[in-house]
Amino acid sequence: MSVDSLIEGRQASPPHHLRRPGLLVSLMVAPGVLVLVLFMILPLLWVVRVSFYETAQGTTMVPAWVLDQYVRFLADIWYLRNVVWLSVFVSIVSTAITVLLAYPIAMYVARATGLRRQILQTLVLAPLLIGLVSLVFGWIVILRGGGLFNSLIIWLGFVDAPIRLLYAMPAVYILLIYVGIPYVVMTLLDNFERIEPTLLEAAANAGAGGWRIFASIILPLTLPGLNAGVLVLFALNFSAFAIPLMVGSANTNLIGLVVYKQAMQLGNLPFAAAISVIMVAISAAILVIYSRLMQRFFLWRLGV
C-alpha cells in the first residue's frame, strides 16, 4: 500500500486486505488543498470579517460586528454615481466593444488552416502571456501628449493641440478593450472549431447565401462561446484596478481601483474590504441577470 498505491491508483493487492482508497486520495490532495484553504479561503473569509470592523481615527481597525463600512459606501451618492455606476457603465461598454472586435478576428483565425492558422493563433493569444505593464507601456508611448497618436492627428490637421487621452477615460477604455480581445478570441476559437464544415455546406446546399449562413448557423452555434467570453470579460472589467491605476486619473475611479486605493494608499482596510464584498455582490447580480436574459431570449434554443 502506501507509496505504491499512491502512484498506481489501481487495486494492487487482494480484496481481503481491506483497502482505503479514500485515505490515499486524501494524502495526495491534502497539501494542495491545505495551502489553498490557508491562503485562499481563509483570507477571503477574513476580508468578509474585516468588512464588519469599525475604523477609529480615520483608518485604525477596531474589531466589531457593525455595518458602518457598508453604510458609508452605499449611503454616499458620490460613491454610487462616480464609482458603482461608472464601473457598471465602463465595463458594459468596454465588454460590448471588445466582443464586437474579437468576433471577426476569431472567425478569421478559425478559418485559416495549417501553418498560417498556427501563426495567427499564437499571435492573437500571445498578449495573454505578455505582462500588463509591458502592454500598458506601449500604449503610453502611443497615447501620451507628445505621443504618436497626437503627433499623427496634429500632422493630419484634425486638431491644433494634443488631446488628452492618457491618464483619462479614453486610455482606460482602450486598454480594457485591448487586453480583453485575446480572452474573447480564445473562448470563441473553441466554438468555431466545433462547427462541422458539413453544417455550413448543408446550409449552402439548402440555398443559403453568405450572410444567411452566418446569421442562421455560425452565429447561433458560437453564441455559447460568445456568452462565456462575455461573462468572464465583464467580471474582469468590472473589478479591474490595474488598468485605471496605470492609465487613469482621479475621474476613472472604477470600483476595483477604489478598493486598491482605500487599502494601499489610504490604509483603510475595513472600508476596502466592505467595498470588495459589494463589488462581488454587484458583479454576481449583473451576471445572473445577464444569464437569465440570455437564457430567456437565445440560449434555450441550443439547449444550453
Partner: peptide, 14 residues
C-alpha cells in the same frame, strides 16, 4: 476570484 480581491485578501490576512 478577481485579482483585486485575492491581492487585498492576502495582504490583509498575511
Amino acid at each position: 476570484v478577481p485579482t483585486t480581491i485575492i491581492g487585498l485578501a492576502l495582504y490583509v490576512f498575511l
